[in-house]
């Protein structure tokens, strides 16, 4: 099958993301890349755990007094939901329903942006209320690095999905852009999985001391 070929809902293949050799390569290459990303975040988690609550003196706030669970829970729900809506988008992509795919990708982007907004609010809160900054202690540096790396990934993912949506808004789906949408949604799921670990390791384990 050719990347430029025109399709209808009937001729559209069941796995459009892997219908061309380029698509197959992208699919596999991106999974491998996520393997590398897993090690990257594992290293950041290890660094965080080694430096958790490591502060220069008793005046610094520790994890158990810092985190605001209701806020983080709301952020978690937003991001988990955005992962679900990206599944809907891919469902419509596989059914050759471009409009609905764009709609659900739009919802995904909005939820992701809301998550990012809450995270910025949260960081701002820690800096101004608790003087817990990037430079105030090793704990602060490790916390903002780990959670910030995740936030940076979210921001990049938003830019990526929006670029794809705008670029393809006029021309609909084909086998050239279907793999692109698919790997972007894989990336989005990955970000979500990392957040589940951050919620557990940083926030929940932080609450119990």
């Amino acid at each position: 099958m050719q990347a430029e070929e025109k399709f209808t809902a009937e001729t559209w293949p069941t796995a459009p993301e892997r219908a061309t050799l380029e698509g197959k390569n992208k699919f596999l290459g991106f999974w491998l890349f996520l393997g590398g990303e897993t090690v990257l975040f594992a290293s950041l988690f290890a660094t965080y755990l080694a430096l958790k609550d490591k502060v220069p003196n008793a005046e610094h706030t520790l994890a158990k007094d810092l985190f605001d669970l209701p806020l983080v829970f709301a952020a978690t729900m937003l991001l988990l939901t955005s992962s679900l809506t990206s599944v809907y988008a891919m469902h419509h992509m596989k059914n050759f329903n471009f409009k609905k795919m764009q709609l659900w990708l739009g919802v995904t982007v909005l939820l992701g942006a809301a998550f990012l907004g809450l995270e910025i609010y949260e960081f701002n809160h820690y800096v101004h209320e608790y003087h817990h900054t990037f430079t105030s202690s090793a704990f602060g540096t490790a916390f903002y690095t780990l959670v910030g790396f995740h936030g940076g990934h979210v921001a990049f993912g938003l830019l990526w999905i929006v670029t794809l949506m705008i670029r393809n808004s006029k021309r609909g789906l084909n086998l050239y852009n279907a793999p692109k949408f698919y790997v972007a949604s894989l990336y989005w799921h990955f970000i979500d999985v990392v957040w589940v670990f951050i919620f557990t390791v940083v926030y929940l384990m932080g609450m119990v001391g």
Binding site: A50, P56, T135, S137, A138, T141
Partner: peptide, 13 residues
């Protein structure tokens, strides 16, 4: 960027 990962006086290692 003023981080403290390796500065033991700030809790680093």
């Amino acid at each position: 960027f003023g981080g403290n990962f390796f500065d033991h006086t700030m809790g680093g290692n």
